[in-house]
Amino acid sequence: MQTDNLLRQVSFIKEIDKLKYIQRKTKLFNSDRNENDAEHSWHLAMMTIVLAEHSDKPIDVLKVLKMVLIHDIVEIDAGDIFLYDSVINHTNTDEELIAAKRIFGLLPSEQAEEFIAIWTEFEDGLTDEAKFAKSMDRFEPLLQNSSNNGGTWAEFNVPYEKVYEKKKAIKEGSTSIWNYAENLIDESVKKGILKKSTDQ
């Protein structure tokens, strides 16, 4: 049984290497190179460890780490949907659930069930851990775009109103990080790297 578990776990580990090939729209800090999903997940994990004290509620940091490390694995099958996509809804749960069942299903059943449950908890965004994980997921690209002269906001002509609407989810996990993020958004408008729809 232990050997069978190991074989299944190694199969999963090999499969998730594909995450390194999933390109995101956002670029690395002060760079013109696109970030991949594996880099994004690693960065969110580090942010979680470093910023956990700013959570509005006590959180199980290990659970948040699991969430941010596995939340995008489904994109191996489902692909990365741009947060500001005006055609495809970023909440692509049906297709992503099929992907979650296939990819996490490579693991021994108990682990597979745990990973699917954690992934679902993140997607639902109702627990304190999920709220903080989502705060990290929204905060990282905000920092990237503000370092890249507007980054994807400028590249895809995303207005301030849409950015603000998507980013205010940060507030659900951390008031202090949201205050910082809101100031960064306002500064980006002042610098002209993020434009209000009336200025387009």
Rank of each mutant, 00 (worst) to 15 (best):
E165S: 14
K167A: 07
Y21S: 10
K101L: 09
I76V: 06
I118L: 13
S147A: 14
Y84C: 09
T48G: 15
L69I: 07
N149F: 07
E113F: 01
I76Y: 03
W42C: 09
T3D: 10
E172G: 00
Q144G: 05
T93G: 02
E75K: 14
I76G: 02
R8E: 14
I59L: 00
N92T: 04
A78C: 06
Q2R: 11
I170W: 05
L184N: 01
N145A: 10
E53A: 12
G173H: 08
P58Q: 01
E113S: 15
Q144T: 05
L143D: 04
E182R: 07
I76C: 02
V68W: 08
L106P: 07
A52R: 15
N34K: 05
L19H: 03
Q144S: 07
S11E: 13
H43C: 06
H54Q: 11
E95K: 14
E35Q: 14
D37Q: 13
N148L: 09
L6E: 03
T175H: 10
E114N: 09
V61G: 04
H71E: 10
M136F: 10
L83D: 07
N183T: 07
F132M: 06
L142H: 06
E140P: 02
T91M: 10
G79E: 00
P141S: 06
L6H: 08
G173E: 12
K25D: 05
G105M: 06
N148R: 12
H90Y: 14
Q2Y: 10
K190I: 12
L107Q: 14
D4K: 11
R102C: 02
L44P: 05
K63Q: 13
E165F: 12
N89L: 09
I118D: 12
I16C: 03
S41F: 00
V158A: 07
A181C: 04
E53G: 05
N89C: 08
K162I: 12
P141H: 04
R24M: 15
T120E: 14
G125R: 05
W178G: 00
I22D: 02
R24G: 02
I22T: 11
N30D: 09
T152E: 14
L6F: 01
E15G: 01
N34H: 09
E129T: 06
K14H: 10
F12S: 03
V10N: 06
K101V: 05
I103W: 06
L142M: 12
R24I: 01
E182H: 09
M1I: 08
T127W: 09
G150H: 04
E75H: 14
V50K: 13
K14E: 08
K167F: 08
I88G: 00
I193L: 02
I118F: 13
K20F: 01
L51H: 04
L106T: 05
P159G: 11
N179T: 09
Y160G: 02
A181L: 03
I185R: 00
H54M: 10
L6A: 08
E123W: 11
D80I: 02
G173C: 08
M47W: 12
N5R: 11
M67T: 03
E114F: 09
E95F: 07
M136T: 05
A130N: 05
N5D: 15
L194C: 00
H54W: 02
T91E: 12
L97W: 06
T175V: 11
K57P: 00
G173D: 06
E121D: 15
L51A: 05
S174E: 08
A181K: 00
